[in-house]
Protein backbone atom coordinates (compact mmCIF):
# COMPACT_ATOMS: atom_id res chain seq x y z
CA UNK A 1 0.00 0.00 0.00
CA UNK A 2 2.94 2.30 -0.47
CA UNK A 3 3.06 3.05 -4.19
CA UNK A 4 2.86 6.73 -5.14
CA UNK A 5 1.49 6.39 -8.66
CA UNK A 6 -2.19 6.07 -8.00
CA UNK A 7 -4.64 8.30 -9.82
CA UNK A 8 -6.78 11.16 -8.51
CA UNK A 9 -9.83 8.94 -8.94
CA UNK A 10 -8.17 6.16 -6.88
CA UNK A 11 -7.34 8.71 -4.19
CA UNK A 12 -10.91 9.92 -3.93
CA UNK A 13 -12.22 6.35 -3.84
CA UNK A 14 -9.79 5.50 -1.06
CA UNK A 15 -10.80 8.60 0.94
CA UNK A 16 -14.48 7.79 0.51
CA UNK A 17 -14.12 4.15 1.54
CA UNK A 18 -12.02 4.98 4.62
CA UNK A 19 -14.41 7.71 5.80
CA UNK A 20 -17.35 5.34 5.52
CA UNK A 21 -15.43 2.57 7.32
CA UNK A 22 -14.79 4.88 10.27
CA UNK A 23 -18.20 6.46 10.42
CA UNK A 24 -20.51 3.52 9.88
CA UNK A 25 -19.54 2.08 13.21
CA UNK A 26 -22.32 1.83 15.71
CA UNK A 27 -21.01 1.89 19.26
CA UNK A 28 -24.29 2.09 21.13
CA UNK A 29 -25.23 -1.27 22.64
CA UNK A 30 -28.24 0.01 24.60
CA UNK A 31 -26.82 -1.13 27.96
CA UNK A 32 -27.23 2.20 29.78
CA UNK A 33 -30.68 2.78 28.26
CA UNK A 34 -31.79 -0.57 29.70
CA UNK A 35 -30.09 0.00 33.04
CA UNK A 36 -31.70 3.41 33.57
CA UNK A 37 -34.98 2.26 32.06
CA UNK A 38 -35.39 -0.57 34.59
CA UNK A 39 -34.11 1.48 37.56
CA UNK A 40 -36.50 4.37 36.88
CA UNK A 41 -39.34 1.93 36.14
CA UNK A 42 -38.87 0.28 39.55
CA UNK A 43 -38.59 3.70 41.27
CA UNK A 44 -41.65 5.18 39.60
CA UNK A 45 -43.91 2.16 40.16
CA UNK A 46 -42.78 1.91 43.80
CA UNK A 47 -43.48 5.64 44.16
CA UNK A 48 -46.95 5.24 42.68
CA UNK A 49 -47.80 2.33 45.02
CA UNK A 50 -46.43 4.25 48.00
CA UNK A 51 -48.34 7.44 47.19
CA UNK A 52 -51.59 5.97 45.86
CA UNK A 53 -52.16 3.05 48.21
CA UNK A 54 -50.40 4.26 51.36
CA UNK A 55 -50.50 8.05 50.91
CA UNK A 56 -46.86 8.00 51.88
CA UNK A 57 -45.04 11.01 50.41
CA UNK A 58 -42.34 11.26 53.06
CA UNK A 59 -40.39 8.14 52.15
CA UNK A 60 -40.41 8.77 48.39
CA UNK A 61 -36.85 10.06 48.39
CA UNK A 62 -35.55 6.73 49.78
CA UNK A 63 -36.87 4.88 46.73
CA UNK A 64 -35.11 7.31 44.42
CA UNK A 65 -31.82 6.75 46.25
CA UNK A 66 -31.55 3.66 44.05
CA UNK A 67 -30.30 6.09 41.40
CA UNK A 68 -27.12 6.78 43.42
CA UNK A 69 -25.56 3.28 43.05
CA UNK A 70 -26.77 3.37 39.43
CA UNK A 71 -24.79 6.57 38.81
CA UNK A 72 -21.70 5.00 40.44
CA UNK A 73 -22.09 1.86 38.31
CA UNK A 74 -22.52 4.04 35.20
CA UNK A 75 -19.31 5.95 35.91
CA UNK A 76 -17.34 2.71 36.32
CA UNK A 77 -18.97 1.22 33.21
CA UNK A 78 -18.23 4.31 31.07
CA UNK A 79 -14.61 4.39 32.25
CA UNK A 80 -14.22 0.72 31.22
CA UNK A 81 -15.91 1.28 27.86
CA UNK A 82 -13.66 4.24 27.15
CA UNK A 83 -10.62 2.08 27.82
CA UNK A 84 -11.76 -0.75 25.57
CA UNK A 85 -13.01 1.36 22.65
CA UNK A 86 -10.61 1.40 19.74
CA UNK A 87 -12.10 4.50 18.17
CA UNK A 88 -14.05 7.47 19.40
CA UNK A 89 -16.23 9.14 16.80
CA UNK A 90 -17.62 12.68 16.97
CA UNK A 91 -21.07 11.06 17.14
CA UNK A 92 -20.11 9.28 20.39
CA UNK A 93 -18.79 12.52 21.83
CA UNK A 94 -21.81 14.65 20.93
CA UNK A 95 -24.20 11.97 22.18
CA UNK A 96 -22.49 11.77 25.55
CA UNK A 97 -22.54 15.58 25.87
CA UNK A 98 -26.27 15.66 25.10
CA UNK A 99 -26.90 13.29 28.04
CA UNK A 100 -24.54 15.27 30.24
CA UNK A 101 -26.65 18.39 29.54
CA UNK A 102 -29.77 16.42 30.53
CA UNK A 103 -28.20 15.33 33.84
CA UNK A 104 -27.21 18.95 34.64
CA UNK A 105 -30.66 20.27 33.67
CA UNK A 106 -32.41 17.52 35.68
CA UNK A 107 -30.29 18.36 38.71
CA UNK A 108 -31.06 22.09 38.39
CA UNK A 109 -34.77 21.47 37.87
CA UNK A 110 -34.74 19.27 41.00
CA UNK A 111 -33.22 22.07 43.08
CA UNK A 112 -35.45 24.78 41.60
CA UNK A 113 -38.61 22.71 42.15
CA UNK A 114 -37.46 21.84 45.66
CA UNK A 115 -37.05 25.52 46.50
CA UNK A 116 -40.28 26.58 44.79
CA UNK A 117 -42.49 24.48 47.04
CA UNK A 118 -44.32 23.01 44.03
CA UNK A 119 -43.16 19.35 44.03
CA UNK A 120 -46.10 18.33 41.83
CA UNK A 121 -44.38 20.10 38.94
CA UNK A 122 -41.33 17.85 39.13
CA UNK A 123 -42.67 14.89 37.12
CA UNK A 124 -44.19 16.97 34.27
CA UNK A 125 -40.98 18.99 33.94
CA UNK A 126 -38.72 15.94 34.07
CA UNK A 127 -40.90 14.24 31.44
CA UNK A 128 -40.66 17.28 29.17
CA UNK A 129 -36.92 17.47 29.73
CA UNK A 130 -36.52 13.71 29.21
CA UNK A 131 -37.72 14.05 25.65
CA UNK A 132 -34.89 16.39 24.67
CA UNK A 133 -31.82 14.09 24.95
CA UNK A 134 -33.85 11.12 23.78
CA UNK A 135 -34.96 12.94 20.61
CA UNK A 136 -31.44 14.25 19.90
CA UNK A 137 -29.93 10.79 20.46
CA UNK A 138 -32.47 9.44 18.00
CA UNK A 139 -31.28 12.00 15.44
CA UNK A 140 -27.55 11.49 16.17
CA UNK A 141 -27.78 7.67 16.10
CA UNK A 142 -30.27 7.76 13.18
CA UNK A 143 -32.58 5.65 15.31
CA UNK A 144 -36.31 6.28 14.87
CA UNK A 145 -37.59 4.39 18.01
CA UNK A 146 -35.78 6.95 20.20
CA UNK A 147 -37.47 9.82 18.39
CA UNK A 148 -40.87 8.15 18.81
CA UNK A 149 -40.05 7.63 22.51
CA UNK A 150 -39.18 11.31 22.86
CA UNK A 151 -42.47 12.42 21.33
CA UNK A 152 -44.33 10.08 23.69
CA UNK A 153 -42.49 11.77 26.57
CA UNK A 154 -43.69 15.20 25.51
CA UNK A 155 -47.29 13.95 25.15
CA UNK A 156 -47.10 12.35 28.61
CA UNK A 157 -45.65 15.58 30.06
CA UNK A 158 -48.66 17.44 28.76
CA UNK A 159 -51.11 14.80 30.04
CA UNK A 160 -49.45 14.78 33.48
CA UNK A 161 -50.52 18.35 34.28
CA UNK A 162 -54.18 17.45 33.76
CA UNK A 163 -54.35 14.41 36.04
CA UNK A 164 -53.88 13.92 39.82
CA UNK A 165 -50.24 14.08 40.92
CA UNK A 166 -50.06 10.42 42.06
CA UNK A 167 -50.74 9.20 38.52
CA UNK A 168 -47.83 11.16 37.10
CA UNK A 169 -45.57 8.38 38.50
CA UNK A 170 -47.41 5.93 36.27
CA UNK A 171 -46.83 8.24 33.31
CA UNK A 172 -43.15 8.31 34.22
CA UNK A 173 -43.20 4.49 34.17
CA UNK A 174 -44.82 4.51 30.71
CA UNK A 175 -42.27 7.07 29.54
CA UNK A 176 -39.25 4.97 30.57
CA UNK A 177 -40.73 1.97 28.77
CA UNK A 178 -41.20 3.95 25.53
CA UNK A 179 -38.02 6.05 25.69
CA UNK A 180 -35.47 3.74 27.26
CA UNK A 181 -36.55 0.12 27.69
CA UNK A 182 -38.04 -0.56 24.23
CA UNK A 183 -35.36 1.44 22.31
CA UNK A 184 -32.72 -0.10 24.62
CA UNK A 185 -33.63 -3.65 23.54
CA UNK A 186 -33.82 -2.54 19.89
CA UNK A 187 -30.40 -0.84 20.17
CA UNK A 188 -28.99 -4.00 21.73
CA UNK A 189 -30.28 -6.17 18.89
CA UNK A 190 -28.97 -3.68 16.27
CA UNK A 191 -25.57 -3.69 17.98
CA UNK A 192 -25.49 -7.51 18.13
CA UNK A 193 -26.43 -7.73 14.44
CA UNK A 194 -23.55 -5.38 13.58
CA UNK A 195 -21.10 -7.34 15.73
CA UNK A 196 -22.24 -10.68 14.36
Amino acid sequence: MEQQDFSAKDSLQLIESMISKAQNRFNENGHLYLLWGWVILVCSITSFISVYFFSNYKNLMYVWMLTIPTVIYQMIYLARVKKSTAVQTYTDEINSKVWMVFVIMGFLVGIIIGRSGQPQLFNPLILALYGMPTFLSGVILKFVPLRIGAVSCWVLALVSVFIPYQFSFLLLAIAVITTWIVPGYLLRSRFKTQQG
Binding site: L14, I15, M18, I19, A22, Q23, A86, V87, T89, Y90
Partner: peptide, 11 residues
Protein backbone atom coordinates in the same frame (compact mmCIF):
# COMPACT_ATOMS: atom_id res chain seq x y z
CA UNK B 1 -5.68 10.46 7.25
CA UNK B 2 -9.08 9.62 5.72
CA UNK B 3 -9.89 7.41 8.70
CA UNK B 4 -8.78 10.02 11.21
CA UNK B 5 -10.57 12.94 9.52
CA UNK B 6 -13.94 11.42 10.41
CA UNK B 7 -13.30 10.44 14.02
CA UNK B 8 -12.14 12.16 17.17
CA UNK B 9 -9.36 9.65 17.80
CA UNK B 10 -8.52 6.07 16.94
CA UNK B 11 -6.33 3.33 18.34
Amino acid sequence: MSLLIGVKEAE
